[in-house]
Amino acid sequence: MSGFITSSIGKKILMALSGFFLMFFLLQHLIINFMSVISADLFNETSEFMGTNPLVQYLMQPILFFGIIYHLVMGMRLDLQNRKARTSKYVMNKPGENSSWMSRNMIITGITILLFIALHMVDFFFPTIKAHYITHEHLDSFQMVAAKFTNPVYFGIYTLAFIALALHLLHGFQSSFQSVGFNNKKYTPTLKKLGNAYAILIPFGYFVVAAFHYINSL
């Protein structure tokens, strides 16, 4: 099994599996975000539940962190390794003739998402952890979110991150299925369409929530 983890195919399959997990997480996170559009109380109750439930805090959250860290560390390592496989570059190359921009620039969209995650942690995750475990004060999650999105620069940065996420998912979704060996004449074309829909709708959903709070603040 150790040979599997270090082999090129093993790494590719694990990248896909961590990708699947993160794609599922995106959906779950979005559902909670949407609660802030529906009702402030519902959002606060759910945030309280997520922030205090031991199963979420001590099991789901560590798994999530492992998934994120594995996906980003491996993604960067693989990219460096791939660059080393061709040290002498072509004088003339036309990659646009045979592959999509999204598929060739996963590292760029990936690092953009990573920077966003860092900002997002500083904005929301660390204050929540501090309130729950250090200062033990009551946190109004809805107010915290609403306050952040009064700033148009913030809204702009978040929108850019959602675009990067959409570009990352446009390749990532269908690519994960190929990596785990699912390539089927009958179902793959539908799966690709489903992937494109997911890649557009999920980031758009996040954008809608951010836009709602920004417009509300005007």
């Binding site: 195919i9 590719k12 791939n82 990659p95 045979n98 592959s99 390539n183």
Partner: peptide, 28 residues
């Protein structure tokens, strides 16, 4: 020392024999 596949699909397009990406999925 070959690099890792990231499923860009460029190989399938440029292959003179039209070898399908499906073969990579089978190998995986």
């Amino acid at each position: 020392g070959f690099g890792n596949c990231t499923n860009t699909g460029a190989c399938e397009v440029e292959c003179p024999k039209g070898i399908s990406l499906k073969n990579i999925a089978i190998m995986n």
